[in-house]
Write a protein that binds this DNA or RNA. Structure first.
Lengths: 260, 260
DNA sequence: TTTTTAATAAGTAAAATTTACGGAATGGTT
DNA sequence: AACCATTCCGTAAATTTTACTTATTAAAAA
């Protein structure tokens, strides 16, 4: 979708291709520089930041829609995606960006705002994705003109009720931290003890004793030490570790113990 | 809604009052005779059982819709309700009951099936409710002609993909058992140790040592012994207990320990 | 080449929690 | 008064969690 005709068609007739009243908001988590981050976009027609999102095609399974939306945005295959909530308590969650403003920008005439499907009440299905920060290559498109990774502690005001969406995603992540393959998806294939340690501290927002933390992961056979180390500036080089996928997944099924 | 005109209007023009493509399915859990049960209804036009459910009014917050639907069905105020998933992976989840069949039963003419909003693709938001079995008085209505409580282990084949909905509700209940006020909502105000013990065993599907279980609940100050007992046939009368609401809710926030 | 620096790595003992387990007491019925 | 099915209770062993300090190392600077 990039020609003017296609855009005008989307705005005018989008509800023929997509389910009206429903959208998907995706909270894409990455981890970089000891910080948990999410990906935000600048949307055309709204002077601020918002979550990546999109609509569900008329005959498209919901989970495929979420996959498609995040995949197109990040370039990643094999996404870890999880639905966490549907937001529908603001019946007046209308598009704050004006369709008119948006279309004028492109010199289109698509009729009155009030009649447009984009202006109707929309419930939004929240998905979060856990991605390897270093493998993402963000694509903006005709509807978005900028992107940026933001620390979860410093999220700016977002479109609609999307700040609530982010909060809920974070709360879910914390709640499920010992039931979801968080480290596996958020860290690169090979990582150091300090990295995974700090990841868990960041998500939980509290300190964890490093010795006990790594002792436990190793004792449970969830990670294994490799014979390589990573060069990190002027200091002692940490060893690299790797997840033991099978043991890790077994442990998650039962829920790893609650504390480290 | 009970006159023929109202029903015909609902079928013909329902999408003026309700959001199309969306519905709510509610899994209403109760506990009776040491069994965890859910409430099922017989829907007109479908020869079998289905979940209580309904539609979302155009300007009605989602959670209010869920409340309204379960409240009307059970007669209960102050419901404990929780959204647990949105089901939208079957784009072909069409109504298996025929609108025609349904309307013929009432001698109405409402046009072709294909054009009817009830026949379009519908995503369903799953809510579960935890209710006190003894306080429920089920109301059937013009769309439903029978109801019954079913053991969760013996759920019959349901409408659409609703068996999956029930499975997911159960899985969520198990996962959140130590984070949700399950006992508080599923048990009557006063209950015995064997009752709450067996409730947790039923939900988790495994045995829990009774001594350790009650020891812990009491030690944590979550329940307190009353000076009353219940007469139960020819045996020793168990004492009644009551939840300590404050302590209970505090404990749930952090997630009570994992085992009893 | 040596020194300096800042980070990584590793083990043990105390405290807390969880698990395992059997026997006495009770209320109503016969 | 005896019987039965059920409630009720306490302690010891095993496991898990917590708390905590020092030696090692890689690279940069001197």
């Amino acid at each position: 979708m990039n020609s003017q005709e296609e855009i005008a068609d989307f705005i005018r007739n989008g509800s023929q291709y997509y389910l009206p009243h429903l959208s998907i908001d995706s909270v894409i988590f990455g981890y970089h520089n000891q910080q948990l981050k999410i990906l935000l976009l600048k949307w055309i027609g709204y002077n601020g930041w918002g979550l990546p999102g999109g609509f569900i095609q008329r005959r498209e399974p919901l989970s495929e829609a979420a996959n498609r939306i995040v995949q197109e945005r990040t370039g990643l295959e094999d996404l870890f995606l999880q639905q966490f909530h549907i937001f529908g308590d603001s019946p007046y969650r209308l598009q704050e960006r004006s369709v008119r403003e948006f279309t004028e920008k492109y010199g289109l005439d698509v009729g009155a705002d009030e009649d447009n499907w984009l202006f109707e009440r929309t419930l939004s299905v929240g998905y979060f994705a856990l991605v390897d920060y270093f493998r993402v290559s963000v694509r903006t498109d005709i509807f978005t003109y900028d992107y940026q990774w933001w620390d979860v502690g410093e999220i700016p005001p977002l479109l609609f009720d999307q700040n609530e969406v982010v909060e809920k995603a974070l709360a879910t992540l914390r709640l499920q931290i010992y039931h979801q393959p968080i480290g596996y998806n958020l860290l690169p294939e090979k990582f150091t003890l300090p990295e995974i340690h700090s990841l868990y501290e960041t998500i939980l927002g509290k300190e964890l004793d490093g010795r006990n933390f790594s002792k436990k992961l190793v004792a449970l056979g969830l990670i294994k030490k490799l014979d390589e180390r990573r060069a990190i500036g002027p200091h002692r080089s940490p060893y690299l570790y790797q997840f033991e996928k099978d043991a890790y997944e077994d442990a998650l099924k039962q829920g790893i113990v609650h504390t480290y």
